[in-house]
């Protein structure tokens, strides 16, 4: 049986602030598994086969660097969208949820997206100082989410729009 909570980090740690999500899950390794029934997965980018990682989950948290979200991070609940990102080798979490529905005929598990603000994505560059600060704040939230598996509590962490 898969772990009820999947945290899926998207990013390439050798491309500057694209390392934000991989670094976040590295910080949760060991600790997250002890704190709850959590599985941590990271990959460079989302692709169609990742729908198979979503099956049997109680919830999924995608984590990704973002060049345009508010600082230090933006946490949201997401749903399936036909957003055309299939036109690239990389998919968005929204499109992955849509593909899940197409492949399995049912909706994907409840899904959330934690965008962490990044600034510099050049190959070979280290994490920028500003991104490192954002990572600290996002990691704190991720730990709280791991400790509180109740989705109602997660939704209480969403920003009021």
């Amino acid at each position: 049986m898969p772990a009820p909570l999947l945290i899926f980090a998207i990013g390439n740690e050798s491309r500057g602030d694209d390392a934000l999500a991989p670094l976040l899950v590295r910080g949760l390794e060991g600790w997250a598994e002890r704190a709850g029934q959590v599985e941590l997965i990271e990959d460079y980018q989302l692709q169609v086969e990742h729908v198979t990682d979503l099956t049997g989950r109680g919830a999924v948290l995608f984590v990704d660097a973002d060049v345009s979200c508010s600082e230090p991070f933006y946490f949201s609940e997401i749903s399936a969208e036909h957003d055309h990102s299939y036109t690239s080798h990389a998919m968005t979490p929204f499109a992955l949820l849509h593909t899940y529905r197409q492949v399995y005929g049912v909706d994907a598990p409840p899904a959330f997206l934690l965008r962490i603000r990044g600034y510099d994505f050049e190959l070979g560059n280290p994490l920028s100082d500003k991104a490192a600060a954002n990572l600290g704040a996002a990691s704190k939230l991720a730990r709280e989410l791991c400790l509180n598996g109740n989705l109602q509590r997660w939704r209480e962490c969403l920003p009021n729009i």
């Binding site: 692709q47 169609v48 086969e49 729908v51 198979t52 036909h82 055309h84 299939y86 036109t87 499109a95 849509h98 593909t99 197409q102 492949v103």
Partner: peptide
């Protein structure tokens, strides 16, 4: 796009996912 494929040719789309996996 692949959403269109999945709607019109669901078995092909599913095979693609599982081959890739």
């Amino acid at each position: 796009n692949i959403v269109g494929i999945a709607a019109a040719y669901p078995e092909i789309a599913k095979q693609g996912v599982l081959l890739r996996k």
